[in-house]
């Protein structure tokens, strides 16, 4: 690689379109959200009838967001959801990838396609689909369970979060599986043979050869799952008409959306968005550092 003045000019030319759009649609909105979150609309005149003006409000929107029970509930809810959903998703994706890897060649393309297929279904359409499968009267699942003497409500306050988790798992497990499968394929098969000659059984090969080698893929999919999990929005929004357990601030994203478009309180919505973005960054960076440190310990 060379380093010359003409290099810098060429690099700038190639980078310009991306940087322009990145600045306009990534950097600026973040800056604008932070700015907006520091403002408040103040009513003036007697009884606030004299109109309104925008004033600098310091951190009061953050204080309002973090002392609002409904918003705090939504954060607790997605954290609880993430604690279950992330291991479930990554565990299932890993198991699917290892099963495909272990199976004989015939049939594998069919199974792989079947698992990956839901990735092509948009989240809202998946939610509409599963929504029908959760509603008594339409759902064949509930019909079958009824016939077996089991009465379940998949949409009440105790279960709807896990009904949502099911939709998200259905959508993305196959995609995460494919990322892991790609890495499994990159493993030199001499390693397997060496392990076999040493007398390792299938389980030991998985534990001591495959799992350590697919670590990067698992880390990558975990980070994306954490980010996606905190953003939970479309699934609860679509299920809302059928479930009384989902309120307008069921997840942080839904709360921010409601503040912005129902209550027209953009500043509070911006503060909530910033809190969510910071939480996503802290958790995903935290996870990366955690696995990075373990790597160093080895």
């Amino acid at each position: 690689m060379r380093s010359r003045r003409s290099d810098r000019a060429a690099a700038a030319g190639f980078l310009a379109p991306f940087l322009l759009l990145f600045t306009a649609f990534f950097a600026l909105p973040i800056g604008y959200a932070v700015y907006q979150s520091l403002l408040a609309v103040e009513r003036i005149g007697p009884l606030g009838l004299g109109g309104s003006r925008t004033v600098f409000a310091g951190l009061s929107n953050y204080r309002a967001a973090l002392t609002d029970d409904a918003f705090l509930d939504s954060i607790t809810r997605v954290l609880l959801y993430a604690v279950v959903q992330v291991p479930l998703m990554i565990g299932l994706a890993t198991i699917l990838a290892l099963l495909l890897d272990a199976a004989a060649a015939r049939g594998v393309p069919f199974f792989r396609s079947a698992y990956f297929l839901p990735y092509g279904v948009p989240g809202v359409i998946a939610s509409i689909l599963w929504g029908f499968l959760y509603v008594p009267g339409v759902s064949p699942i509930i019909d079958l369970l009824d016939a077996a003497g089991l009465t379940v409500n998949l949409l009440d306050s105790g279960s709807v979060l896990w009904s949502i988790a099911n939709i998200v798992t259905w959508e993305f497990a196959g995609y995460n599986m494919l990322v892991i499968v790609a890495q499994l394929k990159a493993i030199n098969s001499e390693l397997y043979e060496a392990a076999r000659i040493d007398g390792a059984d299938a389980w030991q090969v998985i534990r001591h050869v495959k799992l350590p080698l697919i670590r990067p893929a698992i880390v990558l999919t975990t980070v994306f799952t954490i980010i996606g999990t905190l953003q939970l929005f479309a699934e609860p929004l679509v299920l809302r008409p059928t479930s009384t357990a989902i309120n307008t601030s069921y997840t942080p994203n839904l709360a921010a959306y409601t503040q912005a478009f129902v209550n027209n309180n953009y500043s509070l919505a911006a503060a909530q968005s910033v809190i969510l973005a910071v939480a996503a960054c802290v958790l995903s960076f935290g996870f990366l550092r955690l696995v990075g440190r373990r790597e160093d310990d080895r």
Partner: peptide, 24 residues
């Protein structure tokens, strides 16, 4: 530094951007 900045962009939740983007 530039590459790391772009990588950080990967970690920003798209939905957190959408609201301020709408306002802009």
């Amino acid at each position: 530094a530039l590459f790391n900045l772009i990588l950080a962009g990967v970690l920003i939740p798209g939905t957190a951007l959408a609201l301020p983007l709408y306002l802009m």
